[in-house]
Design a protein around this nucleic acid. Sequence first.
DNA 1: TAGATTGTTAATCGATTAACAATC
DNA 2: TAGATTGTTAATCGATTAACAATC
Lengths: 216, 216
Amino acid sequence: MNSESPVAISTQALQRMPYYLQYLKQLQGDGVKLIAAPAIAEALGLNEIQVRKDFAAVSTAKGKPKTGFIVQNLIDNMEEFLGYHNVDDAVLVGVGSLGRALLSYQGFDQCGMHIVAAFDSNGSLIGGEVNRKKILPVTKLSEMCRRMNIHIGIIAVPENQAQMVCDQLVAGGVLAIWNFAPTHLFAPKNILVKNENMAASLALLSKHLKERIESE
Amino acid sequence: MNSESPVAISTQALQRMPYYLQYLKQLQGDGVKLIAAPAIAEALGLNEIQVRKDFAAVSTAKGKPKTGFIVQNLIDNMEEFLGYHNVDDAVLVGVGSLGRALLSYQGFDQCGMHIVAAFDSNGSLIGGEVNRKKILPVTKLSEMCRRMNIHIGIIAVPENQAQMVCDQLVAGGVLAIWNFAPTHLFAPKNILVKNENMAASLALLSKHLKERIESE
DNA sequence: TAGATTGTTAATCGATTAACAATC
DNA sequence: TAGATTGTTAATCGATTAACAATC
């Protein structure tokens, strides 16, 4: 494994990349051409050695002592590394309030994902559209995934329907699932399931506040 | 630190709690009274030793060999541990499509957070409401936070406004910030900032797909 | 009793941070 | 040159998993 990447990269490092990209693009917008690792570390609240390692894992060009890295190069290398250049088609299942928000979000295309259609089981929604994406009946889900060669399935349905939707996405041949339902999903090992569980984040906030307030 | 909890708990363990809770409540709904760690591990795709350790960290009652744990006890212990019983008031800033979705979500109250109001800078939104939450001018943000004793600030504004909003929330005395803007925020060390960066999750998906597709 | 499950101590694994020589 | 910054190897830290005795 990792045949194409000379240096292995951790999951954590991977998820720092979008923060680097956001800041690097901001610098670029301000006309900055060069940037050093310590400056980025400072701006993003990270350790500078960590930044250097992360850059080493994705950068084709080496940094120059006393100078740093070429902003444009880093942006290109990161986007290439993350696969933002070859956009994957996605479908979204569950057109509730969260589903609508995701369908309306403009930034996914720049991150290598394009939502082509939405699915729902509610007959009154079917045939409508949100942000120019048609809402189709969920009964057609796996067939459409296969026909359109969809790679990503986004699950935004209630938790009791999530596993069923997951199964159909897998049957439709998707390779990755982005799960917004607050439940564990079973999927074949070669399918990546990324959970986005608000309750898990809230647990962190709630516990922090409980401790702060109790310690008074 | 950790004076009230006999066993220290990791951030990771904390974020697993909502998954346990979800499953335990499902069991309870099915009339199941007792559950063993290996069964839960199986259902949630976790290691059974990890489950036992997580339970040991929050449970007041010990598990019984050959029997397991009392479902009701675990639910109570976890909710108490996470602070779901004492609900914290929150405000949301930025009534775009994501902000609306968050305002409409019904599950936060059960997780110890209650959104009392929303703020926006767009005059045409002010005075309106979403899911019975009034939309107020962002100019009143810190004053209102202080007056209403708000503990949590939710940031759902564009990235270029996020730091300014963060500063005002801090000025208003909030203790924790839930940041949906894809940018790093600077805040005092005693304020918890939890980032919810969709781009970071997408990076994981995009990279996985790039590798899968390249390896064909 | 026998066997499944518990709780805890030790070992492993992965990620971060420190130390330091190389270089512009 | 001197000093800042780079890249890499070693040390530390945190979390997970393994090993195992205790117990119902």
